[in-house]
Nucleic acid binder design. Structure first.
Lengths: 177, 177
DNA sequence: GCAACTGATTGCAAAATGCAAGCGGATTGG
DNA sequence: CCAATCCGCTTGCATTTTGCAATCAGTTGC
């Protein structure tokens, strides 16, 4: 996978960056799942990426300027990957993709609740989330007042509420049967 | 290229629909370039898609519900492709992709002017454009008041203004030399 | 000392892509 | 009326990319 520069069209160039089946999945797991290590990305994602593809894409995303890599001080062999500003500004695209998929595709409820929250929150929520990512990945000062829940916490809470409700429904069905 | 259903995540499912190098390019040319025929898509796009890939993607996009095909009454051999509502609602994604690419990638000026216009117009302009596409492709009643320029006309005018300005600059350089 | 874990790499089969040529039928120009 | 052109699309084939499993050398915890 290399860059062709087929044309100078912005949509085409964007597609040449992440118009494949894995690059955006990796970025999604880093942005929304908070994953920073190779193994987290390898085992954590639902879709099951192969290790050679993951290695290739991480390298490529670094070359393209979307990721940086640093040594993890706690473990000499661990590498920690960080999002760049370029990758953080993909949040609105991710939100739109999620919103579109939620309407038109057979999404599962527990996985689409985050897209729904992100859609309802709109650009202000996206901005808050991007600020949090800048804090996490770029060391920028945190702009969220202390005490307020982070966007990732909100997303996680929403997800767990759905899972809990579904488990509850299942218990009801079982006791009825 | 088939659908895996790797997971029920909205972003993943969206990627399974157009996470390849050509599907979105074809939709871009239909949405922004107004192309409706096989040959128009084959020869018209800057990126140069191969005819077998184009045939395959058109078929796939029809199966996925993004396109429909009909006979062109004016020419017994021509097929005319139409966008469905599912495809028309990709406009916001296209706009975000264009906006992101314009910031981070080496776009050419004459091709990025449309992305700029679409970004500046924001959601209201996107809505107007989607209405026009519904009129063109789905036969919906036109909601743009007569006399007002269509979004596609605006995009084209902006593009041609840049091309004209560049030609003018070139003439200046030549006379100076 | 050793099992488990770290970020990868290797070999190989399967699938997708790119490219050029061609197909049967429809239309057009002279 | 006939040849040239155009229509959507297919075929054959070489190249590239992907998927999968096994494996690697270094690091860590016990």
């Amino acid at each position: 996978m290399n860059i062709d520069r087929r044309s100078g069209c912005p949509i085409n160039l964007s597609l040449e960056v992440f118009g494949d089946r894995w690059s955006l999945i990796i970025l999604r797991d880093m942005i929304f799942g908070g994953r920073r290590h190779f193994r987290e990305l390898l085992n954590g994602s639902l879709e099951g990426i192969a290790s050679n593809i993951l290695a290739d894409r991480l390298k490529r995303l670094m070359e393209l300027g979307l990721l940086t890599k640093a040594d993890d001080p706690s473990h000499k062999q661990k590498a920690i990957y960080s999002l760049t500003e370029m990758a953080i500004t993909l949040v609105p695209i991710m939100a739109q993709l999620g919103a579109w998929g939620r309407v038109w595709l057979p999404v599962s409820e527990e996985l689409s609740i985050r897209a729904e929250l992100l859609e309802k929150g709109g650009p202000p929520l996206w901005e808050q989330f991007m600020d949090e990512l800048r804090h996490e990945h770029l060391g920028a000062p945190s702009r969220t007042p202390p005490g307020t829940p982070t966007v990732r916490q909100q997303l996680r809470a929403a997800y767990e509420a759905v899972v809990e409700r579904k488990a509850e429904e299942l218990r009801h069905i079982k006791t009825e049967a």
